[in-house]
Design a protein around this nucleic acid. Structure first.
Lengths: 116, 116
DNA sequence: ACCTATTTGTCCGTATGTATG
DNA sequence: CCATACATACGGACAAATAGG
């Protein structure tokens, strides 16, 4: 993971980081199924705070590029670019529900009720 | 702005906050054009850190509920909708899942797993 | 079944930057 | 110029999920 950040570019570090990692995935330099370095690891290597890396990782997760979970780390998804309509819809619902402040159980309940 | 948080509920504070504020807007208790208290103000009033409030404010901005800008604060937008994005997403997921031949339990399982 | 290490998640505190009015 | 208020980044602490022995 060779990352180059420019602190004086005016662009937020977490945005630069997100773009760089996304680029490495898009160009296939990381590849599906592979695991990104842990947030603390990458943070130290790049010279930024853990929070900054985590913010980028979470953005990539929201974008459907990686699978990010506690204790597991960040794993590149199988099809970062071609997401199935179902997964797209799932991600959309998760985003909308979270934005509305709903809990997981509430969202699942809504889905269950809407199933006719 | 009467906000009640339950630190021992297991639910993240910023989610509870987002839900509460969203509720106040949805029920018209705040109203379009009105300005929410500043992040620091609300943080002190509720008893949480500024970051927690800002995180909620930014989530509400992403949801298109408020206009949040530096130096200006958070202003409630000309009331678009509060709950409909979620229902829209739910309907979309149901349609996509059925088209893919998924069962209700399978769709709910997918949603549960995607919730991170 | 249990314990431990790893890793992300949340929250707090602080400091500095930057747009707004 | 100046006060206000969000934006970003750093640092630390503890909780929670995961994986492996």
């Amino acid at each position: 993971m060779l990352i180059r950040l420019e602190p004086s570019s005016g662009r937020p570090l977490h945005e630069q980081l997100t773009a760089q990692i996304h680029g490495q995935i898009a160009t296939g330099r990381v590849g599906p199924g592979e695991r990104l370095p842990s947030a603390r690891e990458l943070a130290e290597a790049v010279g930024v705070n853990v929070h900054t890396v985590l913010r980028s990782y979470q953005a990539l997760r929201d974008a459907g590029v990686i699978d990010l979970r506690r204790g597991r780390g960040a794993v590149v998804l199988a099809h970062p670019n071609a997401v199935s309509p179902v997964h797209q819809a799932v991600d959309g619902l998760v985003a909308a529900a979270k934005a509305a402040g709903l809990a997981r159980a509430e969202a699942m309940d809504l889905l269950g009720r809407a199933w006719r």
